[in-house]
Each structure stands twice: as C-alpha cells, then as structure tokens.
C-alpha cells in the first residue's frame, strides 16, 4: 500500500516535471536558435541550421562577434554572393538607433510618472470641483485603443511642425500611458496612512512639500512598477514611433530599424539575428534585474478587473 502510493507520487512527479520541461524547451528554443545564429558567419546562417553546432561541434570554432560589430558600427563588410563575385555592403548603424531609443524611452517613462504622480496625489488627497468626474474619465480612458488618437494628433503635429521630433513622441507616449499610470498610482497613494499626511499638515507643510518630501519617497515601489512597464512598452513600441517619428533615419528608434532590416534585407540573416539581440538587450537587462517589481506591477494592475 505504502509502496504503491510512493510509486504513484513518483510517477506524478515525473509527469509534472516532464511536461513542464517540455513546455519550457518549446518556449525557449526559438529564442535560443536566433541567439546562436547571431554568432555564426553569414554563410553558415544561410546554408545550415543553427542546430549544426550540436550535430557538428567543430563549427563551434567559427562562432564570432562579427555580426554585432557589423550592425553596431555601420561599417562596410564584404561577402561572396551566390554567383561567386564579391560584394560590399554597408551595415546598418544600430548604435545610433540605440541612442535614439534611449532618448525616446527615458523621458517617455519619466514624464508620465511625474505627471501621473502629481495627479494621483491630487485625486487622492485634495478636494476640488470636478474631482470625481475627472477621475471617472481617467477610468474610462484606460481601455481606449490608442489607434483612435493617431490621425487627429498627427494632424495637430503637422500644423505645429512637431512631426519627427522627440518632443512629439514623448508627449504621445505620455498621453497613451497616463490613464494606467494615474490609476495605478492613485490606488497606491490613496492607500497611504492618513495620519502621516495629516500630521505633516499640522506641522505646517504645504501640499507641495508633502508630495515631494513624503509621498514620492513612500511611493517608490509603485513608481518603479509602473516605470518598468512604461519603459518596456515604449522601448518595444513600433506603431507610435512609425506614426510620429516617421522614417527620418536620424531620429528612428531600434524597433523601426529592425523592422526595416526585416523588410528590405529579410535574407540578411546575420544582420537580423544580431540586430534582434541588440534590440532586446536593454529590455532583457531590465527584465532580469527588476523582475520582482515587474511582477508586482502586473499584480497591482490586475486588480482593475
């Protein structure tokens, strides 16, 4: 009896872990394949599958960082075309797009946090005419698809001559991120203990002082959670960048450039694979170092139902 129970447990353990392992493999292999490919030579990528490094370990020696230096520096590289002649092509300069992506993403993350934190405090701890109706509007806007805004805002930008500027895309991302930001930060800030704020008031602190000296430091976990969200969302965004930054190469961000590579040089796998990982580097870094905050943010957001 006891023995058969043990056996049963063993089988179910095996079943659980086995299935889980299988799912994890399926989930990881596509990324892993591109990762391996990004170190292979141009010819190897187009002629043999990436799994060759396992079936034929001698090819391990050919792995190198050339693809990365090609996509990052925009220098020219030479390769043999199928017909045998040598061709020279200029690699894309992703390091420029990388800087652009940072220039877009950092303010487009910090500005909405700042504006939303002020607003969340206002909604939570100040009384003013219109408070309720304005907040209802914020809740209503939570699910409005940003597609609704593209045409009108684009027309405004054309009139204001803002198209293709960083300011334009910061404000757009701020606008699209604000409802969630206000909502999440309001949930957090309105739950802070009333006594702290009231005693600060009695000590003669102004709203502004309470906000900057008390609320902001206390809200760091909530600010960080939303910040990670917004950062990943802006960094990974393609649509808003396409619409408001346009195709000017000096402002285009990584996602646009990677999409260009897929479109125009879909066969240049060595550029695509390395480009994909250059694009993913920052999000993966953020993801691994701040995963706990990220998960916490997800859980907080899910309360909205």
């Amino acid at each position: 009896m006891n023995n058969s129970l043990k056996q049963q447990r063993l089988i179910s353990d095996l079943l659980v872990n086995g299935t889980l392992l299988l799912i994890c493999l399926v989930w990881t292999i596509p990324t892993f394949g591109v990762f391996v490919s990004s170190f292979r030579t141009r010819d190897d990528i187009t002629q043999t599958g990436w799994w060759t490094i396992f079936t034929n370990p001698t090819t391990l020696a050919t792995l190198n960082l050339d693809n990365y230096s090609n996509v990052l520096t925009g220098k020219e590289y030479v390769y043999k075309s199928p017909s045998g002649e040598e061709k020279t092509e200029k690699g894309p300069n992703l390091s420029m797009n990388f800087i652009n992506s940072l220039t877009v993403t950092i303010p487009a993350t910090l500005i909405p946090i700042l504006i939303a934190a002020f607003a969340a405090y206002g909604f939570a701890w100040m009384n003013f005419p219109g408070r309720k109706i304005f907040f209802v509007i914020v809740v209503a806007l939570l699910v409005v698809p940003l597609q609704i805004a593209l045409i009108p805002v684009l027309r405004d930008y054309t009139k204001l001559n803002l198209n293709g500027t960083f300011l334009a895309i910061w404000l757009a991302h701020t606008g699209f991120g604000l409802p969630l930001a206000i909502y999440l930060l309001f949930n957090y800030i309105s739950q802070l203990p009333r006594d702290i704020i009231e005693s600060a008031f009695i000590d003669g602190a102004s709203h502004f002082t309470i906000f900057t000296k008390l609320i902001m430091p206390l809200s760091t976990p909530a600010l960080a959670s939303f910040g990670i969200f917004q950062f990943l969302w802006v960094w990974n965004d393609l649509l808003v960048a396409l619409v408001f930054l346009g195709s000017k190469p000096e402002v285009s961000v990584l996602q646009q450039q990677l999409q260009n590579l897929v479109g125009t040089k879909g066969q240049d796998w060595h550029l695509l694979t390395a480009g994909a990982f250059v694009t993913m580097f920052v999000p993966l870094l953020v993801f691994f170092s701040l995963q706990r905050y990220f998960v916490r943010g997800l859980l907080a957001g899910s309360v909205k139902g």
Binding site: L232, N236, D237, L238, L258, P283, V286
Partner: peptide, 10 residues
C-alpha cells in the same frame, strides 16, 4: 520583455 518586432525575427 521582447518586442513584437524582435519576436517576429525569432
């Protein structure tokens, strides 16, 4: 953490 474009390449 991966963008749709990155996922597209993968």
């Amino acid at each position: 953490a991966i963008s749709f474009v990155g996922a597209g390449v993968i």
